[in-house]
């Protein structure tokens, strides 16, 4: 005959652990294949905004200007236990800076793409493993080699 303890303990064990996952995206990832078409000395600010839309930020640099485009993905994981919670937040960004001269012609650009590397993980896991990054890069057009 089941005792009170044998009924309640399994129920408690089921209720105690719980997990939560959350994801937050800001802006669409930057299209690396579009950025590859930008050519210093030829591409203009009008070309860039036609291809990528309005920038997130415009910075005045004397006679020069710089536009920033970015996108962010953040993945959160929480393991709730009775007395201890384990939480991990991994956030990565795509960033593009385009620099123009006083005539709004592109002089330089620099890009970093890593929104696709964001991971759900436990806090003791390494989310920056090179091999892992490479395999994720390979699946993203314009980023993998």
């Amino acid at each position: 005959m089941p005792t009170f303890r044998s009924r309640v303990l399994p129920l408690l064990l089921l209720l105690l652990p719980a997990c939560a996952f959350a994801r937050q995206d800001t802006n669409d990832p930057i299209d690396a294949t579009v950025v590859h078409t930008f050519t210093p000395g030829k591409t203009t600010a009008r070309d860039v905004t036609a291809a990528l839309g309005a920038p997130t930020e415009v910075v005045q640099l004397g006679k020069r200007t710089a536009y920033r485009y970015d996108a962010t993905t953040q993945k959160s994981t929480v393991l709730f236990l009775l007395l201890v919670n384990f939480a991990n937040q991994d956030g990565r960004s795509d960033r593009l800076w385009v620099f123009f001269d006083e005539h709004d012609v592109l002089t330089h650009h620099g890009a970093s793409y890593s929104t696709h590397r964001t991971q759900y993980a436990m806090p003791w896991e390494d989310v920056h493993e090179a091999a892992d990054n490479q395999s994720r890069d390979a699946k993203r057009p314009g980023v993998g080699k």
């Binding site: 009775l82 007395l83 201890v84 919670n85 937040q89 991994d90 806090p123 989310v127 920056h128």
Partner: peptide, 23 residues
């Protein structure tokens, strides 16, 4: 006692890892 405190949301220990961007 610890279980009772935690169940009421009184005391919680957290271990967290936050990474943003890449070095």
């Amino acid at each position: 006692l610890a279980a009772a405190l935690a169940t009421a949301g009184c005391v919680t220990a957290n271990y967290g890892h936050t990474s943003f961007g890449e070095p």
